[in-house]
């Protein structure tokens, strides 16, 4: 039997891997990938809770994920545009070098 816990654990693993990518990779694109993964994990959680939730007829989880995917798409578009701009400016996408605004 596939339980809620299984999905939650998969989602947690997905989230942890995304977090690891954000924390360890020295590449802005990889960080963006990590963020997308973490977002996907959250979406998976929403869907899983909706599926095993008390009132599936309200379709709240599905609708939320729908909006979330739209926001994630917009976020990816803007983030990648930013990365392109940064790359043009610095000739690098190493986040350690983006420190002009750093105190």
């Amino acid at each position: 039997m596939i339980t809620l816990e299984s999905f939650l654990l998969v989602s947690a693993l997905l989230f942890a891997l995304g977090l690891a990518a954000v924390l360890t990779r020295r590449n802005a694109i990889m960080i963006l990938i990590g963020i997308e993964l973490m977002l996907s994990a959250a979406n998976l959680n929403f869907v899983a809770f909706w599926r095993f939730g008390a009132n599936p007829e309200a379709l709240t989880g599905v609708l939320f994920v729908l909006f979330s995917i739209a926001v994630a798409a917009a976020e990816a578009a803007v983030g990648l545009a930013l990365i392109i701009m940064i790359y043009r400016h610095y000739r690098s996408i190493n986040p350690l070098k983006f420190n002009v605004l750093n105190g």
Binding site: V22, L23, T24, R26, I31, L96, F98, N99
Partner: peptide
């Protein structure tokens, strides 16, 4: 330091 990822590590 200025390493944003390190800060994330601290936060995490």
């Amino acid at each position: 330091n200025r390493n944003i990822q390190a800060r994330l590590v601290y936060i995490g």
